[in-house]
Each structure stands twice: as structure tokens, then as C-alpha cells.
Amino acid sequence: MSEPRRKLVTGLTWISIVLFVVLVVVVMWQVFTRQVLQAPSAWTTTFSQYLFIWLVLFAVAMVFGERGHVAVDFFARLMPRPAQRITNIRAQVSVLAFALLGLTWGGLRGMAISWDQAIPGLPVTVGQMYLALPIAGVLMALFALEDLVRAARGEDMLAGDDAQTEAAIDAAEQKGA
């Protein structure tokens, strides 16, 4: 993993942790006000829903950056190396297209449509809350672009445990040689 990518993934990890902690505190406050005070807080339900969306989007970008996402590559690994490379390139182009068109462009359009739409009980608008979509889209697009370049070069891009296993095997082979 490149150093800029590692730093970005670490930043996303901390953002996800902070969002999760805030989400837990907000939900606990919601339960406390409803069950103990018998006066539910008006803002907590809406805020926790948007907070959860932000958490999911940034956590997905973080996992994508770690290459820890679900990858069904069983059949791709059975193909000859040139076909694996082409399959990998197609997959990265698809992810890049989704990140740019679906999340970034779609998120920007959603923000534009709802920028001035107020959220009852919160000091922000719906459009401002939709800001997480294009941010996550740009981050995922950056990761996908780096992965696309690596795939075009023919570099192996094993995900998650496979990469760790491969590194351990390489280290053992070098140690024995």
C-alpha cells in the first residue's frame, strides 16, 4: 500500500471511529430521554439516521482503501494471467465509474436539489447532509484509480488475508533460500 493511501485509510479509520462514538452517544441520549425522562429528544432520531449514513459511507471508503471489501475472484484466479489482468482492469473501471457517476455526480446533484431543504430540529440542510456522498465517491474513485493503474501494470492486487498470506509465503521463501 502506498504511503498516501495508507495515510488516507488511517484518516478514514479515525473519522469512522469518531462517527461511531458520536452515533452511540446520540442513540444512548435518545434512549435516556425517552425511557428515563419520558420526554424524547426531538433531534436525536433524525441526527442518528444521517450520522449512520455518514458512518457507512466513510467506513465503506476506508474498507475499500484497505482492499478489505468482498471480492469474488474465485473464477478470475482460475483464468490465465492475461485474462486475470483484463478482468481486474474491467472491475476497477466499473468501480471507478460507480464512484464517479453514482456517488460523486449523483451526490452533487442530490446536494444541489436539496441544498436549501431544512431538516427539522437540526441546524443543517438536507443538501449539507448529502455532502458525504460526493466526498466518499471521490475517495473511492482515488482508490479505484490507483488500483486501476496497478492492474494495468499487471501488479498483483490480492485483497485482505490473501495479501497477508502472500507476504508471509514470500518472506518464508526468502528466509529459506
Rank of each mutant, 00 (worst) to 15 (best):
M1H: 12
T46V: 06
S16F: 00
P134W: 01
R77K: 14
A76R: 08
V70F: 14
T104K: 05
G137L: 00
V126Q: 08
L148D: 06
G102A: 12
E166Q: 15
A171P: 03
S41I: 01
V126W: 03
V36I: 07
R67L: 11
E166P: 12
D162V: 11
Q117D: 14
K7N: 09
F47N: 06
P120I: 00
F74I: 11
P4G: 04
G107R: 02
K175Y: 14
V18H: 04
S16N: 02
P82Q: 04
V95R: 13
V22K: 00
W29A: 12
F32C: 04
A144Y: 00
A42P: 10
L103P: 04
Q35C: 15
R77Q: 14
D170M: 07
A152P: 04
V21Y: 09
V72E: 11
L108M: 12
A71P: 04
E155V: 08
G65Q: 01
W105S: 11
P4Q: 02
F98H: 07
V18C: 08
Q30D: 13
A171Y: 07
L108I: 12
R150D: 15
W54Q: 01
L139E: 01
V21L: 15
A39L: 07
P80Q: 10
L103E: 05
L145K: 08
Q92D: 02
V25E: 01
G110K: 02
T104S: 09
A168L: 05
V36L: 07
F75V: 10
L37D: 08
Q128P: 05
V95S: 15
L122Q: 06
L101A: 14
G107S: 05
T44F: 07
H69Y: 08
Q84G: 04
L78N: 10
F98I: 00
F74R: 08
Q35Y: 15
A141E: 03
L100C: 03
M129V: 12
V22A: 02
H69M: 07
Q49Y: 12
V25P: 01
F143A: 10
P123S: 02
W14L: 10
A167P: 05
S114E: 15
T45Q: 15
R34N: 06
V60D: 06
Y50I: 13
G121C: 03
W43I: 00
L142K: 07
T165E: 15
F52I: 11
R5C: 06
A172K: 03
T104I: 00
E3W: 14
Y130H: 09
M28H: 12
M79L: 13
Q30G: 11
A118K: 11
M157P: 09
I169K: 08
S41W: 04
Q38K: 14
D161F: 11
V25W: 03
P120K: 00
G160M: 12
A99G: 13
M79N: 07
T104V: 02
T44E: 11
Q174I: 03
E3P: 09
D156L: 14
V56E: 00
A171R: 07
T87D: 05
R5W: 07
G106C: 01
W29Y: 13
D161Q: 11
Y50V: 12
T165G: 13
L131G: 08
T125A: 07
Q174K: 10
A118L: 10
E166R: 15
A132D: 02
M28F: 15
V9W: 03
G160P: 08
T125V: 06
Q30W: 06
A76T: 11
P80H: 10
